[in-house]
Design a protein around this nucleic acid. Structure first.
Length: 259
DNA sequence: ATGGTAGCGGTGCTA
């Protein structure tokens, strides 16, 4: 089973690019971030016509996540537990059953800039809630996948110019430590299980010709529970998508599971 | 230190 994540940066601005990528890459499941749309305005019909079931957790103007699947989506939940007052749409979960049953989480982790400040505080608080949810999911001892835009550069090797990100919320020691706390509680960074080379990026800023200079960072990740990691056969990044007309600033990151 | 680009929504915020 092929499972992908794609921060599309606006579903209505990107519907053509999304349909083209879905048609070529044909993921069984895809989690989307930054749909920047309320549920009612999500372009369901065009995506459904390619054979996908659709569940959204939208929000006006900002954030918003969705999950697409060729197989039925069951037990869908919306929102990261731990703060009923959190209005931001950044988390969705669903269960998909092929030859195996998988719990799949799609997430859009807060950016956190500028740091320090209230946005950075929100990022760290959100990551504490994520850690609790990850621990509960891992404790099920079932195959679980958490994929999305993590807004974390895990190590300097995940940036073309690490010095440019040293004081950024995506790379600050507190952010990296919070990410490691999740990872080290029993999760596996799927792309890094497959590809240890530096220079593997998933995001290039629209500004300063970052793509043309390959000034990228790796911030879109799949974290796999031990039972999911045991099923992993391949992982990769659809880098070429960034070179197309009117691209997102992120590209898809996918995993292949024997499931 | 600044400004560079993009989406949403119709101004300034977010990234």
């Amino acid at each position: 089973m092929r499972i992908a994540t794609f921060n599309i940066n606006g579903i209505r601005a990107r519907i053509g690019a999304l349909l083209q990528w879905l048609d070529e890459s044909r993921p069984d499941v895809a989690v989307l971030q930054e749909i920047k749309s309320v549920d009612d305005a999500f372009p369901r019909d065009e995506i459904a016509s390619l054979g996908y079931n659709i569940e959204t957790h939208g929000q006006k103007s900002f954030n918003g996540v969705a999950i697409l699947s060729r197989l039925p989506l069951e037990d869908v939940t919306r929102g990261l537990p731990g703060d009923d007052g959190d209005e931001q749409a950044r988390w969705i979960e669903a269960t998909v059953t092929g030859r195996r049953t998988l719990r799949i989480c799609g997430l859009y982790l807060p950016n956190g800039n500028p740091a320090p400040g209230p946005k950075f505080d929100y990022k760290l608080a959100w990551m504490a809630r994520l850690r609790a949810r990850a621990e509960a999911l891992r404790a099920t001892e079932e195959p679980v996948l958490m994929g999305g835009d993590w807004n974390i550069i895990p190590q300097d090797e995940d940036a073309a110019r690490p010095e440019a990100w040293a004081n950024d919320a995506l790379a600050l020691p507190q952010s990296r430590a919070a990410f490691r706390r999740v990872l080290h509680s029993g999760w596996h960074d799927a792309v890094r299980l497959i590809d240890r080379r530096p220079g593997v990026y998933s995001y290039w800023d629209y500004q300063r010709a970052a793509w043309d200079r390959n000034d990228g960072i790796r911030i879109d990740h799949w974290l796999l529970s031990p039972q999911a990691a045991d099923l992993l056969t391949d992982a990769g990044i659809d880098r070429d998508v960034r070179a197309r007309e009117k691209p997102s600033d992120h590209v898809p990151v996918w995993v292949e599971l024997d499931a």
